[in-house]
Simulated assay, not measured.
Amino acid sequence: MQLSSRAVSTAVLAALVAVAGYLGDTSLGELPLVAVVGVLALAFAFGWPVLVNLPSRPGSTAVIALGGVGAVWAVHRTAGDPLLRHLPVVFAFAVLLAFVNELLRGGGRERLVESVSGTVAGTLVAVAAAGWVATQRTVGGEGLVIAGALALAVGSAVAALPLRSWAGAGATTASALAAGALAGLVLPGLDARAGVLLGLAVGVLVAALRQLFDRLPALDRFPATLAAIVLPVTVTGTLVYVAGRVLVG
């Protein structure tokens, strides 16, 4: 899949997160967002071992999936601040499972360090998706989720344009910043300053991930492409949560 198609797909997923966040103000509560983020964590777990060419793909996928879904569920079930207090436990358990996965491998356990580090890194990205759920439960959380997802969607869509590396990075960052500023002006509980800073952080992240994964040879395979599409959405979850705690409270 070409870069433009991946970027547009990421934008669509970000828009889906925004819609799920908007539904948080209905009788459904945060369940739509929990479901969307959980599915994204599973999709990322399916593709990450292929994207980074891990030697034990089924085991790594299982570890990453358990870590990601477990983190989302833990945040959903956590009552009171700090909302992320159980994430270290979930992540530590996933790291332990990564070592168990290596013990169960056959064939001499070749590329052991690469396998463990790649699985742990993928688990960290999947766990970061729980930040979307935590964000929605904070003060002004619904607006933060929509603003962050909107900035991600706009920045990802602009990243699909056929621009040179620095020009593309600048356009991606500027468009995400503008989208965040607009959301800050329109959405309740936010202001333009918070929207600008949030959009800037998301734009820089999208531009950096584009440069990091654009030329990986594994992207000609569907699972790897799926992971590259989902990765910006999962990582942005914790970024939006941290930015929201600093900017909004």
Rank of each mutant, 00 (worst) to 15 (best):
L33D: 00
A178V: 10
L226V: 13
R221Y: 12
A243L: 14
Y241M: 08
T225D: 11
V39K: 06
A149V: 02
F91V: 12
A129Y: 01
A98W: 01
R137P: 04
S9L: 09
P32Y: 01
A207H: 08
V116A: 12
T225V: 12
A94V: 07
V8L: 15
L200E: 02
W166D: 14
A227T: 10
V19S: 08
A11F: 07
L163F: 14
V17T: 04
G122C: 05
L23G: 05
V246E: 13
G244Y: 00
L83P: 04
T225I: 03
L3K: 15
A160C: 09
T135Y: 01
D191T: 05
L103Y: 09
V69Q: 02
T61Y: 02
A129G: 11
V145K: 02
L231C: 07
V52F: 08
V69T: 08
V100I: 10
L197C: 12
T238L: 14
D220C: 06
A227E: 03
G244H: 03
L185Y: 13
D25Q: 14
G108C: 08
A194I: 10
G237M: 05
A130Y: 01
R193L: 15
A176T: 04
L3W: 14
L97I: 08
V233F: 03
T138I: 00
G118Y: 04
L239S: 06
V202R: 09
V100G: 11
E102K: 11
V113K: 09
R164E: 15
V116F: 06
V95H: 04
A7D: 06
V196F: 13
L200T: 15
V125W: 06
G168V: 03
R221S: 15
T172C: 09
A41M: 07
T61H: 10
L190I: 06
L231K: 04
L84R: 09
G168Y: 05
V248R: 05
L87R: 03
D25I: 12
V145P: 01
T119A: 11
A65Q: 00
L13H: 03
V204M: 15
V17R: 02
L103T: 11
A181M: 11
P188I: 04
R215F: 14
V242G: 09
P82F: 08
T10L: 10
S9F: 04
D220M: 12
A207L: 09
E102M: 15
L205N: 02
L209A: 11
T236G: 07
E102V: 14
V34Y: 06
G237N: 03
